[in-house]
Simulated assay, not measured.
Amino acid sequence: MFTGIIEAMGQVQSIKAEGTNKHFTVSAPFTQELQVDQSVAHNGICLTVVDIAGETYTVTAIDETLQKTNLNALQVGDKVNLERCMSANGRFDGHIVQGHVDQVAVCESVTDENGSWVFTFRYDPSLGNVTVEKGSITVNGISLTVVNSQEDRFSVAIIPYTYEHTNLHQVKPGSTVNLEFDIIGKYVARLLSKN
């Protein structure tokens, strides 16, 4: 389980295809603390560490993950938001994040608010996911609060710290991001759809 509080940014060092899988080798400031079999969220996607070599580690994504997330768009040199699993004795600073991307969204606009930024994202509502005003949303693994919730789009307001310490500063209109909708909202929506 994760909280959506980004621990560090990593950088993609290499990408290797093997059948329908892709192996991503990433450098990160906490590589020396990792272990093989450990889960790390990459832009909100829970992936398992399969190898560690010096300052880099490798994770593998299967075809389903590649098709349902923005991993296929990653290139060598790109920055990724990283979060290790929450420890049982740690603070719960964000919200409940599983590391299971529900769908992708496209950035429609980025508005400079003279000290903060408002990002607006459009997503396909036919998949049954919903946002709630002032509810939680995870964008590229970042725990955020929804503003301006609509049926097929929402906005989030970003403070300078988040803008500088995550890869949101690279997101522009047309960029694809990973979304994980609020777990409680997903279960409520599912229950209501059965009535």
Score class of each variant (00 low, 15 high):
residue 1 M to H: 15
residue 1 M to D: 12
residue 3 T to C: 06
residue 4 G to S: 03
residue 5 I to E: 01
residue 6 I to W: 05
residue 7 E to T: 03
residue 11 Q to E: 14
residue 17 A to W: 11
residue 19 G to T: 14
residue 19 G to H: 15
residue 20 T to E: 15
residue 21 N to H: 15
residue 23 H to Q: 09
residue 25 T to H: 14
residue 25 T to D: 10
residue 27 S to Q: 15
residue 28 A to W: 02
residue 28 A to S: 10
residue 31 T to V: 02
residue 31 T to M: 01
residue 35 Q to A: 13
residue 35 Q to G: 10
residue 36 V to G: 02
residue 37 D to M: 09
residue 37 D to C: 11
residue 40 V to N: 00
residue 41 A to I: 02
residue 42 H to T: 10
residue 45 I to R: 04
residue 47 L to S: 06
residue 48 T to M: 02
residue 48 T to D: 03
residue 50 V to Y: 11
residue 52 I to A: 04
residue 57 Y to W: 15
residue 57 Y to L: 00
residue 58 T to C: 10
residue 59 V to Y: 01
residue 60 T to P: 06
residue 62 I to M: 10
residue 63 D to K: 12
residue 64 E to A: 10
residue 66 L to N: 01
residue 68 K to W: 12
residue 71 L to M: 10
residue 71 L to D: 04
residue 72 N to D: 03
residue 73 A to C: 00
residue 77 G to W: 15
residue 78 D to I: 14
residue 78 D to Q: 13
residue 79 K to D: 10
residue 79 K to V: 10
residue 81 N to Q: 04
residue 81 N to G: 03
residue 81 N to K: 04
residue 82 L to N: 07
residue 82 L to Q: 05
residue 84 R to Y: 03
residue 84 R to I: 03
residue 84 R to A: 00
residue 86 M to D: 09
residue 88 A to F: 13
residue 92 F to R: 00
residue 93 D to H: 15
residue 94 G to H: 02
residue 96 I to Q: 06
residue 97 V to N: 08
residue 100 H to V: 10
residue 105 A to W: 03
residue 105 A to Q: 05
residue 105 A to Y: 06
residue 107 C to Y: 02
residue 110 V to F: 11
residue 110 V to Y: 12
residue 111 T to N: 10
residue 111 T to V: 12
residue 112 D to Y: 05
residue 115 G to L: 08
residue 116 S to V: 01
residue 117 W to R: 05
residue 121 F to G: 00
residue 121 F to K: 01
residue 126 S to H: 13
residue 126 S to R: 14
residue 127 L to P: 01
residue 127 L to D: 07
residue 127 L to V: 13
residue 131 T to R: 07
residue 132 V to S: 11
residue 132 V to Q: 13
residue 134 K to H: 08
residue 134 K to A: 04
residue 137 I to S: 07
residue 137 I to H: 05
residue 138 T to C: 15
residue 138 T to N: 11
residue 139 V to A: 07
residue 140 N to Y: 09
residue 141 G to S: 02
residue 143 S to G: 11
residue 145 T to Q: 05
residue 149 S to M: 12
residue 149 S to R: 11
residue 152 D to G: 12
residue 154 F to M: 02
residue 156 V to R: 06
residue 156 V to E: 00
residue 158 I to N: 01
residue 158 I to M: 04
residue 162 T to V: 04
residue 163 Y to D: 10
residue 164 E to W: 05
residue 166 T to M: 01
residue 166 T to W: 01
residue 166 T to F: 00
residue 168 L to W: 07
residue 169 H to W: 01
residue 170 Q to E: 12
residue 171 V to E: 02
residue 178 N to K: 07
residue 181 F to R: 01
residue 181 F to N: 05
residue 184 I to N: 07
residue 185 G to K: 03
residue 188 V to I: 15
residue 190 R to D: 07
residue 192 L to C: 03
residue 193 S to R: 14
residue 194 K to Y: 14
residue 195 N to A: 13
